[in-house]
Design a binder for these strands. Structure first.
Length: 342
DNA sequence: AAGTGGGACAACCGCAGTATA
DNA sequence: ATATACTGCGGTTGTCCCACT
């Protein structure tokens, strides 16, 4: 028996979301929190299906999302993780907490696939990055087998990706992820500029509407649409770095009250520094204490269990030679598990 | 200046897994 | 144990925008 549609198809609006709808959805979630999506259209009067509301929130409106150009580091992470995990975008996204699976999937399909294909034809037969058997397109199940055969090379490659910046310790990428979760900018200035303009087109209207909506904010609202945009982008965690927007706006005394947005999302976008030296567990705890939206809607930096294991595994492997029994155990367990898969 | 093709990305569709009554 | 409801996920499509002719 087929599952009925998630909502009555009649009278359900489709297509791009309007700023007005966004505001309705955001304000509802601010009040009730994400979840129980079934009730959202009913309670808000939105003529959208619950699924559409959830997707809009998780892929677009949820705070902490970074939009715009992918950094080289992110790109490499995706490439290596895709090689390791296949098209499991949600799993890959869990390693890039500020990116949505949809974003990563789109980026892979529009950029990386071509890029790798080009690279592959260019090198034609040569091993690249240690991925002797890497193929841009793989069928379901193939990745599992490849995971077995290439487990070591993939690990190595991922390890490289995780420590791309040679000047940093091997946990550098982890630190960056954490920092970016606190709305630090990961992008190069040029990228930030470009990406924010991309997003501006879709947020400008929302920002304008928010001006009126935020009339009760503690501080006077700004008149400068650019600063409005920056502020909103900060809230939704877009690519506009706070470093880029805030000081300029503050100088002009035009910046919209950050506190207003903070209260809107019950989330301090200027979250206290997540120390780069903070452990994964600490970071996780910090997140869960400060960001209920993210916890609810997406495994943002939920310590992907696999991640900690993977990281530990990667780091420990380098110590195997030094006789780390634990590392060996992890490796053994992994290999045993792999065998059991067949 | 207008038309066209391709790229980028938001959104939808449908299946699978899980929760609940 | 079963049916139904809900959520998550990956694949695909539709639309907008921009560069090129």
């Amino acid at each position: 028996m087929g599952r009925p549609p998630c909502c009555d198809k009649v009278g359900v609006k489709k297509g791009p979301w309007t700023p007005e709808e966004d505001i309705i959805l955001v304000s509802y979630i601010q009040e009730h929190g994400p979840g129980n999506w079934r009730a959202v259209p009913t309670n808000t009067g939105l003529l959208r299906c619950s699924k559409s509301c959830r997707l809009r929130w998780t892929n677009y409106l949820r705070p902490g999302i970074k939009r715009g150009n992918f950094t080289d580091h992110e790109e490499k992470m995706i490439i290596h993780l895709q090689a390791l995990l296949g098209n499991r975008w949600a799993a890959i996204a869990s390693y890039l907490p500020q990116r949505t699976d949809n974003d990563i999937k789109n980026y892979w399909n529009t950029h990386l696939k071509k890029k790798l294909k080009k690279l592959q034809t260019g090198l034609d037969g040569q091993n690249r990055d240690g991925f002797s058997s890497f193929q841009p397109t793989i069928t379901k199940g193939q990745w599992e087998r490849r995971l077995q055969t290439d487990i070591h090379t993939a690990k190595k490659a991922l390890c490289e990706a995780l420590s791309l910046d040679d000047t940093k310790p091997s946990t550098s990428c982890l630190s960056e992820l954490k920092a970016s979760n606190g709305y630090y900018s990961l992008t190069r200035p040029s990228q930030a500029t470009q990406s924010s303009t991309t997003y501006a087109s879709s947020t400008e209207n929302i920002s304008r509407l928010l001006e009126g909506w935020m009339a009760n904010a503690p501080k006077p609202a700004q008149t400068n649409s650019e600063t409005t945009q920056c502020s909103f982008n900060n809230v939704v965690g877009t690519d506009s770095s706070s470093e880029e927007c805030t000081p300029r706006a503050a100088n002009n005394n035009e910046m919209v009250s950050q506190g207003a947005f903070d209260s809107l999302f019950a989330l301090d976008s200027s979250t206290p520094d997540v120390s780069p030296s903070m452990s994964i567990d600490e970071s996780t705890q910090f997140q869960s204490e400060t960001n209920f939206f993210q916890d609810e809607s997406k495994p943002t930096f939920e310590p992907p269990v696999p991640f900690s294991i993977l990281e530990k595994w990667l780091f420990d492997e380098s110590l195997i030679g030094q006789g780390h029994a634990e590392a060996l155990n992890i490796q053994q367990i992994s290999l045993e598990d792999n065998v059991n898969l067949f």
